[in-house]
Design a protein around this nucleic acid. Structure first.
Lengths: 128, 128
DNA sequence: TAATTTTTTAGAATTATTCTAATTTTTTCA
DNA sequence: TGAAAAAATTAGAATAATTCTAAAAAATTA
């Protein structure tokens, strides 16, 4: 665990946001000005192999990183892009039944419009 | 519906594979040698907006396209990369309950090892 | 401490995708 | 039908995320 790796992990754990590699690079740079982009990418990979974080793909152009390795759902607001976590009870069992096999992990993303944006939408529509 | 768009849609519908944009470009080129990459990308977007196909993100570096717009699960073998479809019954209800809101779509990917690869793995292990 | 291994760094290279501007095709409707 | 307008296509340049490379630095081992 080098100091670069420690800082990267701290950045990811410091809030509930699901940051992109580039955001993590920027945040890590505040504490370790000399850090290089390649180091961030290398360590994100290493941390995922070590099951300390989880990569979540496909929300935007760039991948994001979750501070928990345990699979769970992500709900993504289509208006503001905010990502929240959620859980389904007994989902592992349900999933292995459905695919007829054990599995290693899953990724579940739901696209919706969050309450705040829903209100704004109504406001916008009403104003027209 | 231009002839380029028709060919792209045919390519996607011609088999059960979930092709990448680049594969679709190559396959479309066989039938329409002058077709351009930009046309493929433009039309994949247009076809998705028209709800005729669905983009699936994050399986590999490049996005893939599904010949059905209706959300369903994808099970991805971690060894050979093959993608299969699967369904969960009553999943829509379960999902909206879990997130406490209606949603627009979801994406569910399960990583596992398919039967064929599982056997090969055993064979490999046994041979060592 | 010396030797070896691992990590980091800066920047080049690669890959997927988007953008641009010119051209072609399609559509509209007089 | 045919001129005008709108939409789609093309080739290639531009962009953005990520990976690669080779040299330097740091950490580990003996």
């Amino acid at each position: 665990m080098t100091k670069q790796r420690a800082v990267i992990l701290e950045v990811i754990r410091s809030d509930m946001c699901h940051h992109t590699a580039d955001e993590i690079f920027t945040l890590a740079k505040e504490r370790l000005p000399g850090i290089s982009r390649a180091t961030v990418y290398n360590n994100l990979k290493a941390l995922e192999s070590a099951q300390l974080i989880r990569r979540i793909t496909g929300d935007s152009l760039s991948d994001r990183y979750d501070n928990s390795y345990v699979p769970h759902g992500h709900m993504i607001c289509e208006e503001c892009g905010q990502v929240k976590d959620f859980n389904l009870s007994n989902f592992d069992k349900q999933l292995s039944d459905a695919i007829g096999s054990e599995f290693n992990s899953y990724e579940l993303k739901v696209r919706y419009v969050c309450d705040v944006c829903k209100q704004n939408e109504c406001a916008k529509t009403a104003g027209e």
